[in-house]
Simulated scan of single mutants.
Amino acid sequence: MLKRLFTGLILLGACTTTGFAQQKTAERAIVKSKTEIIFPQNINRSAGGDDEGNAGFGGPGGMESKSTVYFKGDLIKTHNESDFGNTMVIVDKRNRRTTTLREAMGRKTGFYSTEEDEEAMRKSMEARRDSIRQTRGQSVSNAANATTPEAEIVATSETKKIAGYNCKKAIIKTKSRQGEINETIVWYTPDFKIPGYPEAGNTGGGFGRGMRGQRGGFGIAGLDKIDGFIMGYDVSRSNGFKMHMEVTKVELDPVIDDKVFEVPKGYDIKPLSEMQQQFRRGRINEDNNN
């Protein structure tokens, strides 16, 4: 009797372990992805972007890019290649420093920033957007009281395989300042997570960090609520903006040399504050010439 009871408990434990597989946390990873973006037709650079803060690109068009993200402890590097040029973002969380590099039209430029620098930049961008809205006669938000839009995660029963992983579909619903409900389709694998994601990585191949930089994926709220790793998403907005990202390859726990995260030579790298001053001077000259 005792022998049969003991055997039954062992089998029950085996079934429980099989039914609830433990999620893996990868301390090191290499993730490759591709991104396709369609820019809105009604947004221009001089207007400062749309009401949601998406940057203007001077007219309609699109972009395709490929990116590789390296994760290793407190170090994250994103390398992105597109028709707009090549970008590289190196995040050193231990020293709270981010270096952003860009190679385009034969020039190699870059800037470095701290978390305090990026927070100051966020407030400056918010103040500029409020000024634009005020000029248009629209309501102005209080930047001091501004909060990240609340995201609702809607689970679905749909699944598909991406880069060899069985992925689940979820829908992230958020409300814009105008009260419009936006939906983002997300595909994720519950098999593993990577520390530091989605604060960095999977943000439009690094392009997203350069343009928005706060929530990842061109400002997609709610990614941090997904219990797994994002393998793809589809963003579609009423102004015509569309973005499709999909992971093409994942390597978990590979050997990654620290040299991968070293800032390469040959770039003209300046502090973020100096880059902002140059940008403001260029914008003033552009406005004066119009």
Rank of each mutant, 00 (worst) to 15 (best):
M63E: 08
E103Q: 06
E103T: 01
I172M: 04
T135Y: 12
K169H: 11
S113D: 01
N80K: 05
D117L: 07
R177N: 15
E150V: 15
R136W: 09
E81H: 14
E152G: 04
S139L: 12
R122C: 01
V69T: 15
G137K: 02
S131I: 04
E150P: 07
R136K: 11
R136Y: 04
R128C: 04
I162T: 01
Q178S: 14
S124L: 13
E180Y: 08
T109H: 06
V69Q: 00
I153L: 15
E126N: 08
E116V: 06
R129W: 13
S82Y: 02
T109I: 14
V91P: 00
E180R: 03
S141K: 11
T99S: 04
S131V: 07
S141R: 13
T78H: 04
S131R: 08
R177T: 15
G106E: 03
K169A: 01
E116D: 08
R129P: 04
N80P: 09
V140H: 01
R96M: 07
R94I: 08
R133V: 00
Q134F: 11
G110C: 00
G106S: 01
E81D: 14
Q138N: 12
Q178I: 10
Y165P: 06
E103L: 02
R129K: 13
S67Y: 06
E126Q: 10
K123A: 12
G73A: 12
A151L: 05
K173W: 02
A143F: 10
M63S: 14
A155I: 14
I171R: 09
N166Y: 00
T147C: 08
A144H: 01
A104K: 10
S131L: 11
K72G: 06
K123G: 03
N95V: 04
F84A: 15
S139A: 12
I132F: 05
I172F: 02
E180L: 09
A151P: 00
L101Y: 06
N95H: 14
E81C: 08
I132P: 02
E103C: 01
G85M: 06
F84M: 13
R96Q: 12
S141P: 03
R177C: 01
I172D: 03
S113F: 03
R97N: 15
S131K: 11
S139E: 11
S67T: 04
I76K: 00
N145V: 14
R177A: 15
T68M: 13
E103R: 10
P149F: 07
I76G: 00
T78A: 07
V154A: 11
K93S: 10
S157M: 09
A146T: 05
M63I: 09
I171T: 10
D83K: 10
A127M: 14
T87L: 09
I172C: 05
I171P: 01
V91T: 06
K161I: 06
